[in-house]
Lab assay of single mutants.
Amino acid sequence: MVYKIRDKETGKVYEVTIDEETNEITVYDVKTGKPVKTVNMTIEELKEAGYEVEPV
């Protein structure tokens, strides 16, 4: 599923895909559409880390 996340401190917005089964999150560069990095976190962990998470 695709989400937009926003860093509450910097205001930067990222587009991510989240595999609900493995909790693998792939972060994409919004301008190029290319993957930047992959992390292993849940949506709740993202929120605790200071991100706003919205489904696209």
Rank of each mutant, 00 (worst) to 15 (best):
residue 1 M to G: 10
residue 1 M to A: 10
residue 1 M to H: 10
residue 2 V to L: 12
residue 2 V to W: 15
residue 2 V to D: 08
residue 2 V to G: 09
residue 2 V to K: 15
residue 2 V to P: 09
residue 2 V to I: 14
residue 2 V to T: 11
residue 3 Y to H: 05
residue 3 Y to T: 04
residue 3 Y to E: 00
residue 3 Y to Q: 03
residue 3 Y to L: 09
residue 4 K to S: 05
residue 4 K to W: 15
residue 4 K to D: 00
residue 4 K to M: 13
residue 4 K to Q: 10
residue 4 K to G: 01
residue 4 K to T: 09
residue 4 K to F: 14
residue 4 K to A: 05
residue 4 K to L: 15
residue 5 I to Q: 00
residue 5 I to T: 01
residue 5 I to A: 05
residue 5 I to W: 04
residue 5 I to N: 00
residue 5 I to F: 05
residue 5 I to P: 00
residue 6 R to L: 08
residue 6 R to V: 12
residue 6 R to E: 04
residue 6 R to Y: 11
residue 6 R to I: 13
residue 7 D to F: 07
residue 7 D to M: 04
residue 7 D to A: 04
residue 7 D to I: 03
residue 8 K to I: 10
residue 8 K to Q: 06
residue 8 K to R: 11
residue 8 K to P: 13
residue 8 K to C: 11
residue 9 E to F: 14
residue 9 E to H: 13
residue 9 E to Y: 14
residue 9 E to R: 14
residue 9 E to A: 14
residue 9 E to V: 14
residue 9 E to I: 14
residue 10 T to Y: 02
residue 10 T to R: 02
residue 10 T to W: 01
residue 10 T to D: 03
residue 10 T to K: 02
residue 10 T to I: 01
residue 10 T to C: 08
residue 11 G to E: 01
residue 11 G to C: 06
residue 11 G to M: 03
residue 11 G to D: 03
residue 11 G to Q: 03
residue 11 G to F: 03
residue 11 G to Y: 02
residue 11 G to S: 03
residue 11 G to H: 03
residue 12 K to G: 05
residue 12 K to I: 14
residue 12 K to S: 08
residue 12 K to M: 14
residue 12 K to R: 12
residue 12 K to V: 12
residue 12 K to F: 10
residue 13 V to I: 11
residue 13 V to K: 03
residue 13 V to T: 08
residue 13 V to W: 12
residue 13 V to M: 07
residue 13 V to Q: 07
residue 13 V to N: 03
residue 13 V to H: 05
residue 14 Y to I: 03
residue 14 Y to A: 01
residue 14 Y to G: 00
residue 14 Y to P: 00
residue 14 Y to L: 03
residue 15 E to L: 15
residue 15 E to K: 13
residue 15 E to M: 15
residue 16 V to W: 04
residue 16 V to R: 00
residue 16 V to L: 11
residue 16 V to D: 00
residue 16 V to C: 14
residue 17 T to L: 09
residue 17 T to Q: 08
residue 17 T to K: 09
residue 17 T to C: 09
residue 17 T to H: 13
residue 17 T to N: 05
residue 18 I to L: 07
residue 18 I to F: 15
residue 18 I to D: 00
residue 18 I to T: 04
residue 18 I to M: 07
residue 18 I to N: 01
residue 18 I to K: 02
residue 18 I to A: 04
residue 19 D to Q: 06
residue 19 D to P: 00
residue 19 D to T: 05
residue 19 D to V: 05
residue 19 D to M: 05
residue 19 D to I: 06
residue 19 D to F: 06
residue 20 E to H: 11
residue 20 E to P: 14
residue 20 E to C: 12
residue 20 E to K: 12
residue 20 E to T: 14
residue 20 E to G: 09
residue 20 E to A: 13
residue 20 E to V: 12
residue 20 E to N: 10
residue 21 E to R: 12
residue 21 E to M: 11
residue 21 E to N: 12
residue 21 E to I: 12
residue 21 E to V: 12
residue 22 T to K: 15
residue 22 T to A: 11
residue 22 T to Q: 08
residue 22 T to D: 03
residue 22 T to P: 01
residue 22 T to C: 10
residue 23 N to I: 04
residue 23 N to V: 05
residue 23 N to E: 06
residue 23 N to S: 08
residue 23 N to Q: 09
residue 23 N to A: 07
residue 23 N to P: 02
residue 23 N to C: 08
residue 23 N to T: 06
residue 24 E to P: 01
residue 24 E to A: 10
residue 24 E to G: 05
residue 24 E to I: 14
residue 24 E to N: 09
residue 25 I to S: 02
residue 25 I to Y: 03
residue 25 I to N: 00
residue 25 I to R: 01
residue 25 I to T: 03
residue 25 I to C: 07
residue 25 I to K: 01
residue 26 T to A: 03
residue 26 T to P: 00
residue 26 T to V: 10
residue 26 T to I: 09
residue 26 T to M: 06
residue 27 V to P: 00
residue 27 V to H: 04
residue 27 V to I: 15
residue 27 V to C: 15
residue 27 V to K: 01
residue 27 V to L: 15
residue 28 Y to K: 05
residue 28 Y to W: 14
residue 28 Y to E: 00
residue 28 Y to D: 00
residue 28 Y to M: 08
residue 28 Y to N: 03
residue 29 D to T: 02
residue 29 D to F: 03
residue 29 D to G: 02
residue 29 D to M: 02
residue 29 D to Y: 03
residue 29 D to P: 01
residue 29 D to C: 07
residue 30 V to L: 09
residue 30 V to S: 13
residue 30 V to H: 13
residue 30 V to Q: 11
residue 31 K to I: 15
residue 31 K to C: 15
residue 32 T to I: 03
residue 32 T to D: 07
residue 32 T to V: 03
residue 32 T to M: 04
residue 33 G to W: 07
residue 33 G to I: 01
residue 33 G to R: 07
residue 33 G to Y: 05
residue 33 G to K: 09
residue 33 G to V: 01
residue 33 G to P: 00
residue 33 G to S: 05
residue 33 G to H: 09
residue 33 G to N: 06
residue 34 K to F: 11
residue 34 K to R: 10
residue 34 K to W: 10
residue 34 K to V: 09
residue 34 K to H: 11
residue 34 K to C: 14
residue 35 P to C: 10
residue 35 P to W: 14
residue 35 P to N: 05
residue 35 P to A: 12
residue 35 P to I: 14
residue 35 P to S: 07
residue 35 P to K: 13
residue 35 P to R: 11
residue 35 P to D: 03
residue 36 V to F: 11
residue 36 V to M: 11
residue 36 V to H: 05
residue 36 V to S: 05
residue 36 V to Q: 05
residue 37 K to S: 08
residue 37 K to M: 15
residue 37 K to H: 12
residue 37 K to N: 07
residue 37 K to C: 15
residue 38 T to F: 11
residue 38 T to K: 12
residue 38 T to I: 10
residue 38 T to A: 05
residue 38 T to R: 13
residue 38 T to Q: 07
residue 39 V to F: 15
residue 39 V to T: 05
residue 39 V to D: 03
residue 39 V to Y: 15
residue 39 V to G: 04
residue 39 V to E: 04
residue 39 V to S: 04
residue 39 V to C: 15
residue 40 N to M: 13
residue 40 N to S: 12
residue 40 N to H: 14
residue 40 N to R: 14
residue 40 N to T: 12
residue 40 N to A: 11
residue 40 N to P: 06
residue 40 N to K: 14
residue 40 N to L: 12
residue 41 M to D: 01
residue 41 M to G: 09
residue 41 M to F: 09
residue 41 M to K: 05
residue 41 M to P: 01
residue 41 M to L: 08
residue 41 M to V: 07
residue 41 M to N: 03
residue 42 T to C: 02
residue 42 T to H: 03
residue 43 I to E: 02
residue 43 I to N: 01
residue 43 I to Q: 02
residue 43 I to D: 01
residue 43 I to R: 04
residue 43 I to L: 13
residue 43 I to K: 04
residue 43 I to M: 09
residue 44 E to W: 11
residue 44 E to Y: 09
residue 44 E to C: 09
residue 44 E to S: 10
residue 45 E to V: 05
residue 45 E to Q: 13
residue 45 E to I: 06
residue 45 E to C: 08
residue 45 E to S: 08
residue 45 E to F: 06
residue 45 E to R: 07
residue 45 E to L: 06
residue 45 E to G: 08
residue 45 E to H: 07
residue 45 E to P: 01
residue 46 L to G: 00
residue 46 L to C: 05
residue 46 L to M: 07
residue 46 L to S: 00
residue 46 L to P: 00
residue 46 L to I: 09
residue 47 K to H: 07
residue 47 K to Y: 10
residue 47 K to L: 14
residue 47 K to E: 11
residue 47 K to I: 12
residue 47 K to C: 09
residue 47 K to R: 12
residue 48 E to L: 13
residue 48 E to V: 09
residue 48 E to R: 12
residue 48 E to Y: 09
residue 48 E to H: 12
residue 48 E to K: 12
residue 49 A to S: 11
residue 49 A to E: 08
residue 49 A to D: 06
residue 49 A to V: 07
residue 49 A to Y: 10
residue 49 A to P: 01
residue 49 A to T: 08
residue 49 A to G: 07
residue 50 G to V: 03
residue 50 G to W: 04
residue 50 G to C: 05
residue 50 G to M: 05
residue 50 G to A: 05
residue 51 Y to N: 02
residue 51 Y to F: 11
residue 51 Y to W: 15
residue 51 Y to P: 01
residue 52 E to F: 07
residue 52 E to M: 07
residue 52 E to A: 06
residue 52 E to H: 08
residue 52 E to C: 05
residue 53 V to D: 02
residue 53 V to G: 02
residue 53 V to L: 10
residue 53 V to M: 07
residue 53 V to Q: 02
residue 54 E to N: 07
residue 54 E to H: 08
residue 54 E to V: 10
residue 54 E to T: 09
residue 54 E to R: 05
residue 54 E to C: 14
residue 55 P to N: 09
residue 55 P to L: 13
residue 55 P to R: 11
residue 55 P to Y: 09
residue 55 P to A: 12
residue 55 P to W: 10
residue 55 P to D: 08
residue 55 P to F: 11
residue 56 V to N: 08
residue 56 V to F: 12
residue 56 V to Y: 10
residue 56 V to W: 11
residue 56 V to S: 09
residue 56 V to E: 07
residue 56 V to P: 07
residue 56 V to A: 10
